[in-house]
Design a protein around this nucleic acid. Structure first.
Length: 109
DNA sequence: ACGTTGACGTCAG
DNA sequence: TCTGACGCCAACG
């Protein structure tokens, strides 16, 4: 477990249900600006050891799900998000204005 | 040590 | 709008 991964997971744990964030902003909040791609790698390494890390709340800048991981499929991610109230339009993208996580809010909508 | 890879983001056409 | 090129950086072999 590298320090980088800890920093990323630490921020992901703070994302409230029903909210999403993109990789680049997550990297920024974790103190590693510009590490968007590395964030993807870090989340990919997640396994059942860290069940408290809501990885599915992380999507790309377009508001779309970008995982190709066979363990955590995009249908699973979408199902988890929709269960929390996050909806997707016809293009499969979530609305940042409605579901984007404002890092200073700690209350569930 | 070094090249490649990838759950990314931005910008020029 | 949509697409492709490019930059980015930690993991991995």
């Amino acid at each position: 477990m590298t320090e980088f991964q800890q920093a990323i997971y630490r921020v992901v744990r703070r994302i409230p249900p029903g909210r999403v964030i993109n990789y680049g902003r997550l990297a920024l909040l974790a103190g590693y600006p510009g590490h968007a791609r590395a964030v993807g790698n870090a989340l990919h390494m997640l396994d059942e050891i860290y069940p408290d890390v809501p990885w599915w709340r992380v999507i790309n800048r377009a508001g779309q799900i970008s995982t190709r991981c066979p363990q955590h499929t995009m249908t699973e991610q979408r199902t988890r998000l929709e269960a929390e109230g996050v909806s997707f339009n016809a293009k499969g993208q979530a609305d940042w204005a409605r579901f984007g996580w404002l890092e200073n809010e700690d209350v569930t909508p």
